[in-house]
Nucleic acid binder design. Structure first.
Lengths: 329, 329
DNA sequence: CTGAAAGCGCTAACAC
DNA sequence: GTGTTAGCGCTTTCAG
């Protein structure tokens, strides 16, 4: 590996001059610029980023901390972040936290030791203080850490309301909700959206919302019990698509026809919902856009470009597929 | 951020001594070790990895280059690699190549500038020369670059044979194959496995294998045409699960009952196959193990620990679900 | 317009 | 046992 010294020698100039052409800053005579450029080519020289980082105290790396890349909601998000990182010449570090605060903290400090430039974080446990004392730019994704911290998410509350409304508009007489864990703010918001739509209905009873943990099997389990206890439920708004697939499976096992006897609507719009039979109707969020917006925000933040909105909230949109029976009231 | 100098001053020793206790090498008196440790605590000192890297010429980072994390086959693989990276205190860098050689090269050289310690690569385009002149440890994953290069994969050929055999054993009279792209070695091997099982059958005709590109929609398309042209096909061995889902959808659209009138078996064993209706029967590979083995191999390679097998090939195993009609010949 | 030199924070000889 | 010091490869004042 050639170093800047080698290039300097080869070109018959000083390292300072080489550095200048490398970073195209400061004055440098056209002829010597050419000489240096040639030397670089000849030696096949590539600047050493580590040395650069040491001096600059920054690494051109960003980290994405998320619960588990294996959850089908996250790959698209990660892809979006990686794409903008790549475009802007940042290196993309992926961290799976399993929702454990301890792991998050480990990643945060371990990467800080590498002069990481910033983080995008999908977390329900991280606190404002922790982020603050980290002293590295952080943007919250999908889950908000604090209103005073840059974030990008979607309109969970409104989307939930719309979803429930859609079910009722299409004739559902008794709609239940399988929720995500309450400590996840978006799950909480979706549940509130549901509740605020049904609380006053004559048919509403307390047991109609049950926790599915944002996971497939627990949701299947939860739905099974729910449907056994309330056989007259004819619509379910499920907190996310992964769980909705579980609900679909539960209905199937119980011999309940979807959508004839039970309408189901999910939330998220992940690709998985397209592959089930029947295909899942869902409140879709623009996952890729959400991810790339977060990355843009972070990188602007890092590079000191002021952002107009530092709390960005995307709208959601229904995708009508096959799990809701169409029909008026 | 405190530096090693600050710690040295605080403890009343030299930086060398601090470095010694940090790395626990060289002799250091117990008392001074304690003093230093205390100083570290007090100052909340964390060693600067960038400075370390610069000196050591290595970064404690490994990269995983794969086509697209959005393809449901890869998240589990990535998770496995990240897990062992994390355990061994390596930082995990994820790169999406979209199967483009150019992108792969970019990542390779960009990360080399950061003193990355090694790569795990899922690639069909990278050549032995490129890897060689990179001069950084590389292990090939899922797709073999060269027999002389460390790799981990599965028994594609044998698994394909077994899959076809399973179909025939259960009464299929005419089995077709939807293949992956021929330039992907494992797709090629699976196709050969199929061919070597059916080539001599009285019913075998050339048009029975068609390319589905390892993608859902193209596979659906391919299956549709295949089934229209050969309505008597009663079994399909599909090159991977993603495509198998496409085939399932094609059958559904065509009104062909699975498994009553058509048996389908996939390959890979991704979670997606569990959520379809009917659930997909498949030749499963131990995806997580494959990924973690690759990571172990790489890290041993990096740390100079000789590995017995540098070409590791895992077995595959059938998962019987609902897309193959059971029954003897 | 160009070069000399200090220094980013750490490790590893090499002295003592 | 411990300290001094020379780099790792680069960028950036500061002179000239």
């Amino acid at each position: 590996m050639a170093t800047i010294r080698d290039v300097a020698k080869q070109a018959g100039v000083s390292v300072a001059t080489v550095s200048r052409v490398l970073n195209s800053n400061g004055y440098v005579n056209e002829d010597t610029r050419v000489k240096v450029t040639e030397a670089i080519k000849e030696l096949n020289y590539l600047p050493n980023d580590v040395a650069r980082s040491l001096f600059k105290r920054r690494s051109k790396m960003i980290g994405l901390i998320l619960p588990d890349i294996t959850n089908p909601f996250f790959p698209e998000l990660a892809r979006a972040v990686e794409d903008v990182a790549n475009e802007t010449e940042y290196t993309f570090v992926l961290c799976n936290s399993d929702n454990q605060m301890e792991k998050e903290q480990q990643y945060l400090t371990a990467l800080k030791q590498k002069y990481i430039d910033g983080f995008i974080v999908v977390s329900s446990t991280l606190t404002t203080e922790q982020v603050h004392e980290l002293n590295v730019p952080v943007v919250a994704l999908d889950r908000i850490i604090s209103p005073h911290m840059p974030s990008v998410s979607v309109q969970n509350y409104e989307g939930a309301q719309e979803a429930v409304q859609y079910l009722m508009k299409n004739g559902c007489q008794k709609v239940a909700h399988i929720s995500g864990p309450d400590y996840v703010d978006n799950a909480h918001a979706r549940k509130q959206g549901y509740l605020d739509m049904v609380r006053d209905k004559e048919w509403y009873v307390d047991g109609l919302v049950v926790d599915g943990k944002y996971e497939l099997d627990p949701a299947k389990e939860a739905a099974t019990q729910l449907l056994e206890k309330y056989p007259d439920v004819d619509g379910i708004f499920v907190g996310n698509d992964l769980m909705a697939v579980g609900v679909l499976k539960a209905a199937e096992a119980l011999g309940i026809k979807v959508p004839e006897n039970l309408s189901i609507i999910g939330f998220d719009g992940i690709a998985l919902g397209e592959t089930t039979t029947p295909a899942l109707t869902t409140m879709a969020q623009p996952i890729y856009d959400v991810g790339s917006k977060a990355a843009e925000l972070l990188i602007n933040y890092i590079e000191g470009i002021p952002s107009v909105h530092s709390n960005h909230s995307f709208g959601v949109q229904i995708i009508e597929r096959e799990t809701v029976k169409k029909g008026g009231v």
